[in-house]
Computed example of a mutant assay.
Amino acid sequence: MIINSPAIVVHSLRYAESDLIVTLFTRTSGLRSYLVRGVLKSKRGKLRASLFQPLTILEIQAFHKDKGTLERIKEAKVLTVYKTLYADPVKSGLVFFISEMIKNSIQEEEENKALYEFLESSLIWLDTNTTIGNFHITFLTKLTQYLGFYPDISHIQLPYFNMLEGGFQSISSTYCVEGEHITQFKKFLGTTFEACMNIRLSKSVRSDILTMLLVYFELHLHGFRKPKSLSVLNEIFN
């Protein structure tokens, strides 16, 4: 089957001398992996290695066998040209962190237009805005909505956040956390990227929120692994 779809580059891995195995999150078919032959040596072909930088937004034409094997890309072109995402050192650090989070969080090989549109709009927002200190917190919080474990805010006034149940409660129990970072985390729930950038956080509180969110992902996603780029991200924001 031939598909035409926007797609976001999640990960690429060198294979043999000149090939790449590329993982894309497509609008029409979810997460798919492709074998791109000869791309590391080709200078004049339709497919170039530069197309497959992390989080590049592409328009692809591909052959899908839908048998759980590597698919094949026939054509690809950049759909959205970023202005700052790869040039700004802070944003570049976020690129590697976000791509790892997507790779470690999303497994579905089926259409999910809402999730695709969230990812695409988030990346464009990051590229076009300058106040981005809380972007990774906001992105991860909003991502839980599309993965099925967004926190229940019906009792948001209560002090303890139960990470296993995904809700707030009045007394502590296993997997409950409280403190200044939870008080501040509540401000990220049910609001926009723009509003979240105005939340003032100390370095330690921002770090504590991120640590809590990664544990939250671990509890709700089977096989989830913390991103290797976390240490780089912590250096950027600390």
Rank of each mutant, 00 (worst) to 15 (best):
M1D: 14
I2A: 04
R14A: 10
A16G: 05
A16L: 03
S18F: 09
D19E: 08
I21R: 01
V22K: 01
L24T: 06
T28I: 15
G30Q: 12
L31M: 14
R32V: 08
S33L: 14
L35Y: 13
V36P: 04
R44C: 14
R44F: 12
L51M: 15
L55P: 06
L58I: 15
A62S: 12
F63L: 14
D66Y: 15
D66T: 15
E71I: 02
R72I: 08
E75D: 12
V78T: 15
T80L: 11
T80V: 15
P89M: 07
K91P: 02
S92L: 11
V95H: 06
F97L: 06
M101L: 15
M101W: 03
I102L: 10
I106A: 01
E109K: 12
K113T: 07
I124G: 00
L126S: 03
T130R: 12
H136N: 08
L140D: 04
T141R: 09
L143D: 01
T144P: 08
F149Y: 05
S154E: 11
Q157N: 15
Q157F: 12
M163H: 02
G167Y: 09
I171V: 10
V177F: 09
Q184C: 09
F185D: 04
T191N: 01
T191Y: 05
F193D: 00
A195H: 06
N198L: 11
K203P: 00
V205R: 04
I209N: 05
L210C: 01
T211E: 12
Y216H: 01
H220K: 03
H220G: 00
L230R: 07
N234K: 06
I236E: 07
F237Y: 13
